[in-house]
Design a protein around this nucleic acid. Structure first.
Lengths: 141, 141
DNA sequence: GCTCAGATGATCAAGATTCTCATTTCTATC
DNA sequence: GATAGAAATGAGAATCTTGATCATCTGAGC
């Protein structure tokens, strides 16, 4: 199970790390702030400090276990790295986050970067809009 | 000159606002943090507070005179709005910022959003890479 | 020049994240 | 298992960016 991921990343297997990994794995939304993870830990009776949550998430990011996203707002959100790269669409109204991957966009990005003399290493793409999902509490009537 | 922009935006023409606009217009880099603008003001002998810089930049943004960008790092950067929308490429090594616009990417974004049931309103796209510009102090030898 | 709404500056405050350091917990070893 | 050493943790302080407060000042119209 997931302890192997920790070991592979050169991280000692500790209770806080396992609990945080567990929360990331079982979360509905898949995109959690450090604060949200901290609250879930408290709710489940764990005595884990907020500083540890930030520390562990930063280590997980360095180890490639999670991605850190900067959506609008001042808090970063973290998501478990589950294979492929993808970008995000965020609903301005309800905050729901969806993932997508588009090969055309990826390719054009590489081409554009090359044109400008850049060796592209990474990119951040977030679309913002109003979702028309029935679940969105703010959808137009 | 630029005082007309201020008036058009419903903002009183004051010394701090004119000085800040001037710095944005004359800057080499075109992408400045609030802190950087503040330092330039101090260097040129103006007694303008940091709070005013933030306040004025926020007003300029609301008036459409400047754009606020969240690149990597925790400080927002501001750039003068000079007509068209564009996205950015940032050099991981020297921090240089270049602008680009690609209609293919823009179009695919709208299509992808539509597929997911979103009415797209805005987007943030930043490419990160290593620039091969001769001016980049970190370019490979 | 005078008045007053609006703007400014100094300071304080808030929110997110990191740092410090004493204490605790893993892991390897006996 | 017990133990030692290294690494991890927790609590709170610290930092950094940005926004809020409020008394004072300034610009636009008369």
């Amino acid at each position: 199970m997931e302890t192997s991921n920790l070991k592979k990343a050169g991280l000692k297997v500790t209770l806080p790390r396992m609990k945080i990994l567990e929360i990331l794995e079982n979360s509905e939304t898949r995109h959690l702030t450090a604060e949200a993870i901290y609250r879930e830990l408290l709710d489940s009776g764990e005595e884990i400090g907020l500083a540890t949550v930030y520390r562990v998430l930063t280590q997980f990011e360095a180890a490639g276990l999670v991605c850190r996203l900067h959506l609008e707002g001042n808090q970063a959100v973290f998501e478990l790295e589950r294979g492929g790269h993808h970008d995000h669409i965020v609903c301005n109204q309800c905050g729901r986050v969806e993932e997508f991957f588009d090969e055309t966009i990826e390719r054009r990005q590489r081409e554009v970067a090359q044109h400008h003399g850049f060796a592209i290493k990474d990119h951040a793409l977030v679309l913002y809009g109003d979702c028309t999902d029935n679940a969105c509490p703010h959808r137009p009537a």
